[in-house]
Each structure stands twice: as structure tokens, then as C-alpha cells.
Computed example of a mutant assay.
Amino acid sequence: MKLRTLLLACGAALLANPLAAGMARAETPAKLLFSAERKPSAGAPQSLGFYSNGCVAGAAELSPDGPNWQVMRLSRNRRYGHPATVALIQRLAGQAARAGIWPGLLVGDISQPRGGPMASGHASHQVGLDFDVWLRPMPSPRLTVEQRETYPFRSVLKKGTFTVDDRIWNDNYRDLIRLASEQPEVQRIFVNPGIKKKLCETAGRDRGWLSKVRPFYGHDEHFHIRLSCQPGSPGCKPQQAIGNGDGCDELDWWFNVALQPPPPDAKPPKPKPPLMLSGMPRACSPVLDAPDRGGVGAIAETPAGGGYASAYAPAPQNVPVPTPRPLR
């Protein structure tokens, strides 16, 4: 039974008992509550909380197809975000195409209709200010809805290494990431440390844009763009400033410290308990309860016979959780 059908059935059974309904919701992981919502909430757009613990009210929808973009894995229903995020995707796609840098963006996950934690794939993307761009140009002819469910991810690294594969990579990849970093709304861009190293080696003399490009393992098939908190969202919790410099002098840590195996007697980290609604900003509960905004919804169901591929290549197993450096 699909998650939404199950939750609807449970909700119907609990309507006559509000106390039981409240208890059931309190005991349900927030990722199940938010992933069951299929439409944005009515009301003014607001990002509420932090990128990895929050939600979005009044989200805008990115059209599945545009002049210079296509949204991938439509069955996920994760093409919603703050209106500034949707506007940025449209603008970036157009600028890249007009400049001859990139024929069209393949857009990965943005946020769920009401944001919040996802059932799979991301810790962030919760407040409508994060989105992924595949490191593959949009093909011609365009992909059908069905093809977008199975079109393969492709790493730009040499297999089994953290070195960019020059048979794939060219200056257009660098120029696309640079163009994204130069957008005023963008606060950070996450790429694999190997990609950051390549950018540092090929950026040339104008290097100011590199400060926003932050290394983080896993991002070798896509890059992750994060916007700053936007005006009109007083409940949005900003991330700390990135600091000065191009960040290229920090790469030694990623390759020579982070990759060191943990001590033989190190205890494995305890898994985090699931985030519950009670652990989220108070304003997110009304977002769940708000009526739907009309005229917006999913256009595709999960394909029969299975779900979708992960957008993330696994991080090296011997890489410890590096904090606080990845959050800078």
C-alpha cells in the first residue's frame, strides 16, 4: 500500500477521535507527514526554519519542462520551492543557454510541496532554498516523462578515484558552476572535493566566485545550489557566512585528513532518531494543516515495479563525518 493511501486510511479512522489522531501524528516521523503532502499550502511564501530542519509555506512550482530545462524524476514530486528559487532556476537556465555554456539544465530535487524532511535522499532541501543540477547537459531530443525516471546519473570523476575525468569534463562545466555562483541569491554551492580541486586548478586569475563553492563528498553526479534566506521569511534561519578566500587552501584537509580511517577501537556513530514534528519549528505544524493551494500537483506516479535511483553516489566508507568544516 502506498504511503499516502496508508496515511489517508489512518486519518479517516482517527477523525472521530482527535486525541488519538494527535497522538498518532506525534508518533509519526516528520518525513512521512511531509512526503505525503501532494500540493503546496495556501498563503504567502515563507521559508521556515533551517535548511535541514524546516518547511516552506506557499511554495511555487517549477514547470516540469521549460525552454532551457527539464525536471528529472517527476514521480518524486520534489519540484517546489520558494518563488526566488524557481525564478533563479529559470534565469540560470536561460543565461547558460544564451551564453553557449549549457544547452539546458537537468534539474534534480528542489523541495517537497510543503518542504520538510524527505523520506529518502537528502538531509537538507527542507525550506525551499536548495536545488540540484545534474552534471549532464539536457540531451536532444528532449527526454520523455518516462525516460526521466530511468535516465542514468553519471559521475564526472574517474571510477574509483576523486579525480575529474577529462574525457567528460570541459570548461563548460566550470563555467556553469561559476555562472551559478555569481547569482546574487546563491549562498553556497556544494561539489565533490575532486571537482573543487579541478575548479581551483582551472579558475584563472579571477577567483572570487570560488568562495561560494564548497567541497562535500558525494556531489560528483550533480551540484547542489543553496540560496540565502529571502526577504519576507523572518522565520528562516540563515547559515553562517562562508568567510573570505577561494577555499582552495582547505582541500588538503579533505584528501589527507577526512580520508583517514577511524581508529580501530572507534565506536561506530549511533544512528540519529527520526526527526519528529515536535522537533521542528512550531510554524511547520500549521503548514501541514493549511489548505492546499489550488491548481498545483504531481503529474507523474512512481513507475510500476520499483522506485527511483538515488541522486547520490555513496561517500567513501572510510571517511569520518567531518564537522564542522563541511558546514562552512
Rank of each mutant, 00 (worst) to 15 (best):
R282K: 15
Y80N: 04
S285G: 12
N172Q: 15
R174H: 15
P137A: 15
T202N: 07
L3I: 14
G66W: 05
G115D: 04
A24I: 02
L8F: 10
P271V: 09
N68V: 07
P29N: 03
Q187S: 11
R25W: 04
L227D: 00
D206V: 06
D109R: 06
P316A: 06
S120P: 00
C248P: 08
A42I: 06
N256G: 04
S35L: 05
N170V: 13
G81R: 00
Q95P: 03
F34W: 12
T144P: 06
A180S: 10
E149D: 07
W253C: 02
S211H: 13
M118L: 15
A313D: 11
R325Y: 09
P320R: 09
I101T: 13
L15K: 10
P291F: 05
S140R: 13
G243A: 09
N53Y: 05
P139K: 08
P67K: 08
V257M: 06
D175M: 13
M23Q: 14
K272L: 10
S75H: 09
F34Q: 08
T302P: 00
R38M: 11
L6Q: 08
S47F: 01
P234S: 13
G232A: 09
G160W: 04
K270Y: 03
A57H: 07
S120A: 15
R114M: 07
P45F: 04
T144K: 12
D292W: 13
S140K: 12
K39I: 05
A241D: 11
V213Q: 00
L288Q: 08
G294C: 02
E27V: 06
E146I: 09
A315C: 01
V287R: 03
K196D: 03
L8S: 14
L105P: 01
R25F: 02
I101G: 11
A311L: 02
K198T: 07
M138Q: 15
G279N: 11
N318G: 05
A304G: 11
S310Q: 08
D252T: 11
P67G: 06
A20V: 02
I225A: 04
P316D: 03
T144A: 13
A21G: 01
H125A: 09
E149T: 01
V127S: 08
Y173R: 04
K196G: 03
V86R: 04
I225K: 03
V191G: 05
L8R: 14
V296G: 06
R205G: 05
L74T: 04
G94T: 07
I110R: 00
A123Q: 15
R226W: 07
L251M: 07
W69P: 01
H222M: 12
I195T: 04
F255G: 02
K31D: 14
I195W: 03
K197M: 02
T161V: 09
P238E: 11
L32T: 00
H122M: 10
P281C: 15
L288Y: 09
P263C: 04
Y173H: 13
K197Q: 12
L3P: 09
L33G: 07
R4T: 12
G104D: 03
D289S: 14
Y312T: 09
V296C: 08
W169H: 05
A60D: 10
D130F: 12
A203I: 06
A266W: 04
R167A: 15
G115F: 05
G279A: 12
G104Y: 00
